[in-house]
Design a protein around this nucleic acid. Structure first.
Lengths: 154, 154
DNA sequence: GCCGAGTGATTCAAATTGGAACAACCCATG
DNA sequence: CATGGGTTGTTCCAATTTGAATCACTCGGC
Protein backbone atom coordinates (compact mmCIF):
# COMPACT_ATOMS: atom_id res chain seq x y z
CA UNK A 1 0.00 0.00 0.00
CA UNK A 2 1.23 3.46 -0.86
CA UNK A 3 1.96 5.65 2.10
CA UNK A 4 -1.00 7.43 3.51
CA UNK A 5 -1.75 10.98 2.41
CA UNK A 6 -3.23 12.38 5.59
CA UNK A 7 -5.64 15.27 5.44
CA UNK A 8 -4.18 18.75 5.58
CA UNK A 9 -5.83 21.42 7.66
CA UNK A 10 -8.14 22.69 4.96
CA UNK A 11 -9.29 19.19 4.13
CA UNK A 12 -9.73 18.32 7.75
CA UNK A 13 -11.90 21.34 8.39
CA UNK A 14 -14.14 20.45 5.47
CA UNK A 15 -14.35 16.79 6.43
CA UNK A 16 -15.12 17.21 10.09
CA UNK A 17 -17.49 20.06 9.33
CA UNK A 18 -19.37 17.83 6.95
CA UNK A 19 -19.44 14.94 9.39
CA UNK A 20 -20.66 17.02 12.30
CA UNK A 21 -23.25 18.89 10.26
CA UNK A 22 -24.49 15.64 8.81
CA UNK A 23 -25.06 14.11 12.21
CA UNK A 24 -26.54 17.21 13.81
CA UNK A 25 -28.82 18.10 10.94
CA UNK A 26 -30.20 14.61 10.74
CA UNK A 27 -30.81 14.41 14.42
CA UNK A 28 -32.52 17.78 14.53
CA UNK A 29 -34.67 17.02 11.56
CA UNK A 30 -35.78 13.73 13.00
CA UNK A 31 -36.70 15.39 16.24
CA UNK A 32 -38.61 18.23 14.64
CA UNK A 33 -40.62 15.89 12.44
CA UNK A 34 -41.44 13.54 15.24
CA UNK A 35 -42.46 16.28 17.64
CA UNK A 36 -44.36 18.23 15.07
CA UNK A 37 -46.14 15.60 13.03
CA UNK A 38 -45.36 12.18 14.43
CA UNK A 39 -43.37 11.13 11.39
CA UNK A 40 -39.83 9.84 11.36
CA UNK A 41 -37.46 11.27 8.80
CA UNK A 42 -37.44 8.08 6.73
CA UNK A 43 -41.21 8.07 6.72
CA UNK A 44 -41.33 11.69 5.62
CA UNK A 45 -39.00 10.95 2.75
CA UNK A 46 -41.14 8.05 1.66
CA UNK A 47 -44.17 10.32 1.56
CA UNK A 48 -42.28 12.95 -0.43
CA UNK A 49 -41.07 10.48 -2.99
CA UNK A 50 -44.47 8.93 -3.41
CA UNK A 51 -46.14 12.30 -3.74
CA UNK A 52 -43.73 13.24 -6.50
CA UNK A 53 -44.15 9.97 -8.39
CA UNK A 54 -46.55 9.47 -11.30
CA UNK A 55 -49.83 8.03 -10.03
CA UNK A 56 -48.39 8.57 -6.56
CA UNK A 57 -47.05 5.08 -6.42
CA UNK A 58 -43.67 3.40 -6.69
CA UNK A 59 -42.29 -0.11 -6.68
CA UNK A 60 -40.71 -1.18 -3.43
CA UNK A 61 -37.32 -1.60 -5.00
CA UNK A 62 -37.48 1.83 -6.60
CA UNK A 63 -38.28 3.36 -3.26
CA UNK A 64 -35.48 1.49 -1.55
CA UNK A 65 -32.93 2.69 -4.11
CA UNK A 66 -31.67 6.14 -3.36
CA UNK A 67 -33.25 5.99 0.06
CA UNK A 68 -31.57 5.62 3.38
CA UNK A 69 -32.96 2.17 4.13
CA UNK A 70 -32.12 -1.29 3.01
CA UNK A 71 -34.88 -3.22 1.32
CA UNK A 72 -35.89 -5.00 4.48
CA UNK A 73 -35.94 -1.70 6.33
CA UNK A 74 -38.30 -0.34 3.73
CA UNK A 75 -40.62 -3.33 4.09
CA UNK A 76 -40.77 -2.58 7.79
CA UNK A 77 -41.50 1.11 7.34
CA UNK A 78 -44.15 0.56 4.70
CA UNK A 79 -45.83 -1.92 7.02
CA UNK A 80 -45.87 0.66 9.79
CA UNK A 81 -47.18 3.35 7.50
CA UNK A 82 -49.83 1.02 6.13
CA UNK A 83 -51.07 0.41 9.65
CA UNK A 84 -51.22 4.17 10.09
CA UNK A 85 -53.18 4.46 6.85
CA UNK A 86 -50.63 6.67 5.10
CA UNK A 87 -49.92 4.26 2.27
CA UNK A 88 -51.34 1.03 0.97
CA UNK A 89 -49.88 -1.81 -1.03
CA UNK A 90 -51.01 -2.78 -4.48
CA UNK A 91 -49.65 -5.80 -6.22
CA UNK A 92 -48.25 -5.30 -9.68
CA UNK A 93 -50.51 -6.69 -12.42
CA UNK A 94 -47.72 -7.55 -14.85
CA UNK A 95 -45.44 -9.18 -12.25
CA UNK A 96 -47.02 -11.00 -9.37
CA UNK A 97 -43.86 -10.63 -7.29
CA UNK A 98 -43.90 -6.85 -7.58
CA UNK A 99 -45.55 -4.55 -5.07
CA UNK A 100 -46.43 -0.91 -5.41
CA UNK A 101 -46.56 1.39 -2.43
CA UNK A 102 -49.40 3.84 -3.04
CA UNK A 103 -49.92 7.14 -1.27
CA UNK A 104 -53.38 7.36 0.29
CA UNK A 105 -55.41 10.50 0.74
CA UNK A 106 -54.56 10.43 4.42
CA UNK A 107 -50.89 10.14 3.57
CA UNK A 108 -51.17 13.07 1.20
CA UNK A 109 -52.89 15.12 3.86
CA UNK A 110 -50.32 14.19 6.45
CA UNK A 111 -47.53 15.28 4.15
CA UNK A 112 -49.20 18.60 3.37
CA UNK A 113 -49.55 19.14 7.06
CA UNK A 114 -45.96 18.32 7.88
CA UNK A 115 -44.23 20.02 4.98
CA UNK A 116 -44.33 23.69 6.06
CA UNK A 117 -42.73 22.98 9.43
CA UNK A 118 -40.18 20.78 7.82
CA UNK A 119 -39.19 23.35 5.23
CA UNK A 120 -39.01 26.02 7.90
CA UNK A 121 -36.61 23.85 9.88
CA UNK A 122 -34.50 23.12 6.82
CA UNK A 123 -34.21 26.85 6.24
CA UNK A 124 -33.42 27.59 9.82
CA UNK A 125 -30.70 25.01 10.29
CA UNK A 126 -29.12 24.96 6.87
CA UNK A 127 -30.41 26.86 3.86
CA UNK A 128 -30.74 30.30 5.40
CA UNK A 129 -27.40 29.91 7.16
CA UNK A 130 -25.49 29.66 3.90
CA UNK A 131 -24.64 32.32 1.34
CA UNK A 132 -25.79 31.80 -2.26
CA UNK A 133 -22.20 30.99 -3.21
CA UNK A 134 -21.98 28.37 -0.50
CA UNK A 135 -25.29 26.91 -1.63
CA UNK A 136 -23.96 26.49 -5.13
CA UNK A 137 -20.71 25.00 -3.92
CA UNK A 138 -22.66 22.52 -1.83
CA UNK A 139 -24.96 21.59 -4.66
CA UNK A 140 -22.12 21.16 -7.16
CA UNK A 141 -19.65 19.47 -4.85
CA UNK A 142 -21.96 17.20 -2.93
CA UNK A 143 -23.98 16.51 -6.04
CA UNK A 144 -20.88 15.06 -7.60
CA UNK A 145 -20.06 13.15 -4.43
CA UNK A 146 -23.50 11.59 -4.45
CA UNK A 147 -23.32 10.77 -8.15
CA UNK A 148 -20.07 8.88 -7.74
CA UNK A 149 -21.27 6.93 -4.76
CA UNK A 150 -24.38 5.91 -6.62
CA UNK A 151 -22.36 4.63 -9.56
CA UNK A 152 -19.88 2.78 -7.40
CA UNK A 153 -22.53 1.20 -5.26
CA UNK A 154 -24.46 0.04 -8.30
CA UNK B 1 -48.00 30.97 10.96
CA UNK B 2 -46.52 33.01 8.14
CA UNK B 3 -46.90 31.48 4.72
CA UNK B 4 -44.28 28.97 3.80
CA UNK B 5 -41.24 30.09 1.86
CA UNK B 6 -40.61 27.00 -0.24
CA UNK B 7 -37.15 26.25 -1.51
CA UNK B 8 -36.21 27.65 -4.89
CA UNK B 9 -34.28 25.54 -7.34
CA UNK B 10 -30.84 26.54 -6.14
CA UNK B 11 -31.77 25.87 -2.53
CA UNK B 12 -33.37 22.59 -3.41
CA UNK B 13 -30.29 21.39 -5.25
CA UNK B 14 -28.10 22.19 -2.28
CA UNK B 15 -30.46 20.63 0.21
CA UNK B 16 -31.11 17.38 -1.57
CA UNK B 17 -27.45 17.13 -2.50
CA UNK B 18 -26.51 17.49 1.12
CA UNK B 19 -29.09 14.99 2.27
CA UNK B 20 -28.15 12.37 -0.28
CA UNK B 21 -24.42 12.81 0.23
CA UNK B 22 -24.87 12.63 3.96
CA UNK B 23 -26.69 9.31 3.79
CA UNK B 24 -24.47 7.76 1.13
CA UNK B 25 -21.19 8.85 2.67
CA UNK B 26 -22.16 7.55 6.07
CA UNK B 27 -23.28 4.25 4.71
CA UNK B 28 -20.16 3.81 2.63
CA UNK B 29 -17.90 4.73 5.51
CA UNK B 30 -19.59 2.33 7.84
CA UNK B 31 -19.26 -0.44 5.34
CA UNK B 32 -15.60 0.21 4.59
CA UNK B 33 -14.68 0.32 8.25
CA UNK B 34 -16.59 -2.82 9.07
CA UNK B 35 -15.19 -4.79 6.16
CA UNK B 36 -11.70 -3.52 6.57
CA UNK B 37 -11.17 -3.48 10.30
CA UNK B 38 -14.28 -4.76 12.01
CA UNK B 39 -15.11 -1.40 13.58
CA UNK B 40 -18.36 0.49 13.25
CA UNK B 41 -18.19 4.16 12.46
CA UNK B 42 -19.27 5.18 15.96
CA UNK B 43 -16.58 2.95 17.41
CA UNK B 44 -13.96 4.42 15.13
CA UNK B 45 -14.90 7.92 16.22
CA UNK B 46 -14.65 6.95 19.83
CA UNK B 47 -11.14 5.65 19.26
CA UNK B 48 -10.15 8.83 17.43
CA UNK B 49 -11.42 11.07 20.16
CA UNK B 50 -9.77 9.06 22.88
CA UNK B 51 -6.47 8.97 21.00
CA UNK B 52 -6.55 12.76 20.69
CA UNK B 53 -7.40 13.34 24.33
CA UNK B 54 -4.84 14.08 27.03
CA UNK B 55 -3.86 10.86 28.79
CA UNK B 56 -5.95 9.12 26.14
CA UNK B 57 -8.98 9.15 28.33
CA UNK B 58 -12.27 11.03 28.49
CA UNK B 59 -15.28 11.19 30.73
CA UNK B 60 -18.33 9.37 29.42
CA UNK B 61 -20.35 12.56 29.21
CA UNK B 62 -17.63 14.37 27.31
CA UNK B 63 -17.51 11.55 24.80
CA UNK B 64 -21.28 11.53 24.44
CA UNK B 65 -21.43 15.28 23.86
CA UNK B 66 -19.12 14.86 20.91
CA UNK B 67 -22.33 14.07 19.01
CA UNK B 68 -21.80 10.35 18.64
CA UNK B 69 -25.04 9.15 20.12
CA UNK B 70 -27.13 9.38 23.22
CA UNK B 71 -25.66 8.63 26.63
CA UNK B 72 -27.19 5.20 26.76
CA UNK B 73 -25.89 4.43 23.31
CA UNK B 74 -22.42 5.35 24.43
CA UNK B 75 -22.68 3.10 27.47
CA UNK B 76 -23.58 0.27 25.12
CA UNK B 77 -20.71 0.94 22.72
CA UNK B 78 -18.11 1.31 25.43
CA UNK B 79 -19.27 -1.97 26.91
CA UNK B 80 -18.83 -3.67 23.55
CA UNK B 81 -15.43 -2.13 23.04
CA UNK B 82 -14.37 -3.09 26.52
CA UNK B 83 -15.24 -6.71 25.77
CA UNK B 84 -13.10 -6.40 22.65
CA UNK B 85 -10.24 -4.98 24.72
CA UNK B 86 -10.10 -1.67 22.87
CA UNK B 87 -10.89 0.51 25.88
CA UNK B 88 -11.25 0.06 29.59
CA UNK B 89 -13.15 1.94 32.24
CA UNK B 90 -11.54 3.78 35.09
CA UNK B 91 -13.55 5.38 37.82
CA UNK B 92 -12.85 9.01 38.52
CA UNK B 93 -11.00 9.56 41.78
CA UNK B 94 -12.50 12.96 42.55
CA UNK B 95 -16.07 12.04 41.69
CA UNK B 96 -17.31 8.57 42.46
CA UNK B 97 -20.07 8.86 39.88
CA UNK B 98 -17.65 9.70 37.10
CA UNK B 99 -16.20 7.14 34.71
CA UNK B 100 -13.29 7.57 32.33
CA UNK B 101 -13.06 5.60 29.13
CA UNK B 102 -9.39 4.86 28.57
CA UNK B 103 -7.78 3.80 25.30
CA UNK B 104 -5.83 0.57 25.70
CA UNK B 105 -2.71 -0.39 23.77
CA UNK B 106 -4.82 -2.77 21.72
CA UNK B 107 -7.23 0.04 20.97
CA UNK B 108 -4.40 2.28 19.91
CA UNK B 109 -3.03 -0.43 17.66
CA UNK B 110 -6.43 -1.09 16.16
CA UNK B 111 -6.86 2.57 15.35
CA UNK B 112 -3.43 2.84 13.73
CA UNK B 113 -4.32 -0.16 11.67
CA UNK B 114 -7.68 1.19 10.57
CA UNK B 115 -6.74 4.82 9.98
CA UNK B 116 -4.98 4.60 6.59
CA UNK B 117 -7.82 2.77 4.92
CA UNK B 118 -10.31 5.13 6.47
CA UNK B 119 -8.49 8.23 5.28
CA UNK B 120 -8.11 6.75 1.81
CA UNK B 121 -11.86 6.20 1.67
CA UNK B 122 -12.59 9.70 2.91
CA UNK B 123 -10.40 11.05 0.11
CA UNK B 124 -11.93 8.84 -2.48
CA UNK B 125 -15.55 9.57 -1.72
CA UNK B 126 -15.36 13.19 -0.65
CA UNK B 127 -12.16 15.15 -0.22
CA UNK B 128 -10.52 14.38 -3.55
CA UNK B 129 -13.79 14.88 -5.38
CA UNK B 130 -14.03 18.53 -4.36
CA UNK B 131 -12.09 21.55 -5.56
CA UNK B 132 -10.17 23.58 -2.99
CA UNK B 133 -12.81 26.30 -3.28
CA UNK B 134 -15.56 23.81 -2.61
CA UNK B 135 -13.63 22.47 0.36
CA UNK B 136 -13.46 25.94 1.85
CA UNK B 137 -17.11 26.61 1.18
CA UNK B 138 -18.00 23.34 2.88
CA UNK B 139 -15.80 24.05 5.86
CA UNK B 140 -17.11 27.59 6.31
CA UNK B 141 -20.74 26.92 5.57
CA UNK B 142 -21.20 23.63 7.33
CA UNK B 143 -18.96 24.76 10.16
CA UNK B 144 -21.40 27.56 10.83
CA UNK B 145 -24.33 25.18 10.52
CA UNK B 146 -22.80 22.87 13.09
CA UNK B 147 -21.97 25.74 15.42
CA UNK B 148 -25.54 26.99 15.47
CA UNK B 149 -26.99 23.56 16.04
CA UNK B 150 -24.65 23.03 18.95
CA UNK B 151 -25.69 26.29 20.58
CA UNK B 152 -29.39 25.70 20.05
CA UNK B 153 -29.27 22.16 21.29
CA UNK B 154 -27.46 23.23 24.47
C1' DG C 1 -43.07 -27.57 -21.60
C1' DC C 2 -39.10 -27.68 -18.27
C1' DC C 3 -34.80 -26.41 -16.03
C1' DG C 4 -31.56 -22.85 -13.92
C1' DA C 5 -30.28 -18.37 -13.03
C1' DG C 6 -31.86 -14.27 -11.47
C1' DT C 7 -35.34 -10.95 -9.38
C1' DG C 8 -38.78 -8.94 -5.90
C1' DA C 9 -40.27 -8.78 -1.56
C1' DT C 10 -40.68 -10.66 2.95
C1' DT C 11 -39.20 -12.94 7.23
C1' DC C 12 -36.04 -13.82 10.79
C1' DA C 13 -32.45 -13.16 14.30
C1' DA C 14 -29.09 -10.11 16.01
C1' DA C 15 -27.31 -5.56 16.70
C1' DT C 16 -28.08 -0.91 17.68
C1' DT C 17 -30.61 3.18 18.95
C1' DG C 18 -32.91 6.75 21.90
C1' DG C 19 -35.78 8.00 25.81
C1' DA C 20 -37.48 7.44 30.34
C1' DA C 21 -36.71 5.87 34.78
C1' DC C 22 -33.34 5.03 38.27
C1' DA C 23 -29.72 5.03 41.92
C1' DA C 24 -25.89 7.26 43.56
C1' DC C 25 -23.70 11.25 44.12
C1' DC C 26 -21.87 16.45 44.16
C1' DC C 27 -22.61 20.92 45.80
C1' DA C 28 -24.45 25.34 47.30
C1' DT C 29 -27.26 27.15 50.63
C1' DG C 30 -29.36 27.93 54.70
C1' DC D 1 -25.17 19.24 58.92
C1' DA D 2 -29.52 18.69 56.57
C1' DT D 3 -31.84 19.64 52.17
C1' DG D 4 -33.11 20.34 47.48
C1' DG D 5 -31.55 20.78 42.83
C1' DG D 6 -28.71 19.27 39.30
C1' DT D 7 -25.15 15.58 37.50
C1' DT D 8 -23.41 11.06 36.15
C1' DG D 9 -23.69 6.79 34.33
C1' DT D 10 -26.42 2.68 33.90
C1' DT D 11 -30.49 -0.13 33.11
C1' DC D 12 -34.73 -1.16 30.97
C1' DC D 13 -37.69 -1.13 27.09
C1' DA D 14 -39.70 -0.50 22.72
C1' DA D 15 -38.59 0.79 18.07
C1' DT D 16 -35.79 0.44 14.26
C1' DT D 17 -32.03 -1.30 11.19
C1' DT D 18 -29.39 -4.59 8.72
C1' DG D 19 -27.88 -8.83 6.35
C1' DA D 20 -28.79 -13.55 5.51
C1' DA D 21 -31.94 -16.78 4.43
C1' DT D 22 -36.25 -17.77 2.22
C1' DC D 23 -40.31 -18.02 -0.78
C1' DA D 24 -42.53 -17.14 -4.99
C1' DC D 25 -42.12 -15.91 -9.28
C1' DT D 26 -40.13 -14.42 -14.26
C1' DC D 27 -37.42 -15.23 -18.08
C1' DG D 28 -34.33 -17.20 -21.63
C1' DG D 29 -32.65 -21.29 -23.58
C1' DC D 30 -33.01 -26.17 -24.52
Amino acid sequence: MAETRWLNEREMRAWSGFLAASALVNRRLDQQLKDDSGLSHPQYEILVRLAAAPERELRMTELANGLINSKSGLTYQITQMEKAGLVRRRSCPSDVRGVFAVLTEAGRARLDEAAPGHVATVREILVDVLTPEQLDALADGLGEVGRRLREQGA
